[in-house]
Write a protein that binds this DNA or RNA. Structure first.
Length: 447
RNA sequence: GUCCCCAUCGUCUAGCCCGGUUAGGACAUAAGAUUUUCAUUCUUACGACCAGGGUUCGAAUCCCUGUGGGGACGCCA
């Protein structure tokens, strides 16, 4: 759908936002959410999303750490318009390559008498005036920055507050969307912008993500805190992204699971929440399940194969067999972590008999007895749903029971479990011979 | 310690700006219905306006105080 008004609006957009992480070797969920909100705002307004790397620490193996970050962002679908790999007219996009620029800007401050040396470092002289920050989320916040602060260390390297502001000026950043932990730092930044006679960008501080349990904000060590975890566990990135959108933002219409295009359309500062949000891995898991079940079969198939191989399941060369198993099990899949257990018995006769499952099955009568009665049916009756069900019904009726009374025992014999794929399709996929063998083996083991 | 921000079910939140709702939705939990097993789905239940003062005929909504939670005060970013 082409909307001419929207097209013109986006062409005229001067919005430039940036995500400026320092490569630490981790991609924290809070950082990811900050990147996401910047990206959403850029896409909503038709502006530019800049990725700038704050790599001032030379000690680290930058490439490897950078890869984690870039992989994570690509995985989440957060493509940047300017920055590493893609370039742009405001480079370089690595702070480690901008030393000359920082010296130049330091000279400006010196010439204005706003910078002075102390203990070998360079300090910025604050105005000491009360300032009002007009934050797009928190409204007007009054505060005074009282202490001069260092902008160059005694080893000659520039400090975060300084480089952050200088880069934002150089890159013509129009909106700064960042974590609420920077709210009180903003006074330092405004002081700096004003000292350079540069326009202060529009700020939008977003709430922090708190640990699901205990005190404080989410830290690297908390479970579920790293994007890498979700990549490894084969979460669907769309699900993670969708959940993250709703942590600290709300579309005000009760919608939760929705396509990213819809979120981009609805995203605005008005919907951003002021209070910090606690991370809920259960809700996140629910989103993942929903997305998994709605996934196009071809995509699910690829994911399933990857997970099966990872789990050491030897998939047969018969692609039709594998496909039919995955197709049958997709609606029962809640996550890819436990997926191997869901399908393992389709690919190996060496599957475990689950104790908990067994006790459930035993509540419906002695499974060994039931299997003995079922065996002749499996052996002789045509191996299709209608015939098997009819024969099972007849058997049950003769004993004053229902056919479903026999389901759990059969399922358990064939899969070692009490739940999983639909029973008859499962039997048909496995085939008569295998089912028979498994029933015999189960009778033996259960006696 | 100083400063800043926040405050609705266990959790994420709508409602608040512009006072009048049986305070709505989602996750989780429980029960029931549907189902040819297991699931799904559907229905229902459970469950909240932090406290105290104002203002008002009337306060979740406006004001103040307290309490609680979070954050910032680094030659970290």
């Amino acid at each position: 759908m082409f909307n001419i008004a929207e097209y013109i609006f986006k062409k005229m957009s001067k919005v430039r936002v940036r995500f400026a992480p320092s490569p630490t070797g981790f991609f924290h969920i809070g950082s990811a959410r900050t990147a996401l909100f910047n990206w959403l705002y850029a896409r909503h307004t038709g502006g530019m999303f800049v990725l700038r790397i704050e790599d001032t620490d030379d000690e680290r193996n930058r490439q490897e750490y950078l890869d984690v970050l870039e992989d994570g962002m690509r995985w989440l679908g957060l493509d940047w318009d300017e920055g590493p790999e893609v370039g742009g007219g405001y480079g370089p996009y690595f702070q480690s390559q901008r030393a000359d620029i920082y010296r130049k800007y330091l000279d400006i401050l010196r010439s204005k008498g706003r910078a002075y040396d102390k203990d070998g470092a360079v300090f910025f002289k604050v105005s000491g005036k009360k300032q009002v920050l007009h934050d797009a989320v928190y409204g007007d916040v009054e505060r005074t920055e009282e202490k001069d602060f260092p902008i160059f260390r005694s080893n000659g390297t520039p400090v975060f507050h300084f480089v952050n502001v200088v880069d934002d000026i150089c890159m013509e950043i129009s909106h700064v969307i960042r974590g609420q932990d920077h709210l009180t730092n903003t006074n330092k930044h405004i002081e700096l912008f004003e000292a350079f006679d540069a326009p202060v960008p529009q700020y939008a501080h977003i709430p922090l993500i708190l640990k699901s349990q205990g005190q404080g904000k989410m830290s690297k060590r908390d479970r579920g805190a790293l994007i890498e975890e979700y990549q490894q566990k084969l979460f669907l990135p769309e699900a993670v992204r969708n959940y993250l959108c709703l942590l600290g933002w709300n579309p005000k219409n009760d919608a939760e699971i929705m396509p990213i295009e819809e979120i981009i359309r609805l995203f605005d500062f008005r919907g951003i929440i002021k209070s910090n949000a606690r991370f809920d891995e259960r809700k996140m898991a629910h989103f993942n399940t929903e997305y998994l079940r709605a996934l196009a079969p071809g995509k699910f198939d690829a994911l399933a194969r990857r997970r099966a191989q990872e789990a050491g399941i030897a998939l047969p060369s018969d692609a039709k067999y594998v496909d039919s198993v995955f197709e049958l099990c997709q609606p029962k899949t809640s996550n890819m972590e436990t997926f191997p257990a869901l399908v393992g018995y389709f690919f190996s006769d060496d599957y475990a008999f689950d104790d908990v499952a067994l006790s459930k099955v035993q509540k419906k009568g002695d499974p060994a007895e039931r299997l003995k009665l079922v065996r002749p049916i499996i052996e002789k009756v045509p191996f299709d749903h209608d015939s098997l069900y009819a024969a099972l019904s007849e058997l049950a009726e003769g004993r004053g029971e229902k056919p479903t009374d026999y389901f759990p025992a059969i399922r358990f014999a064939v899969s070692g479990q009490s739940g999983g794929a639909d029973l008859f399709p499962m039997l048909e996929i496995l085939g008569r011979e295998k089912v028979l063998g498994r029933i015999d083996r189960a009778i033996e083991r259960l006696q």
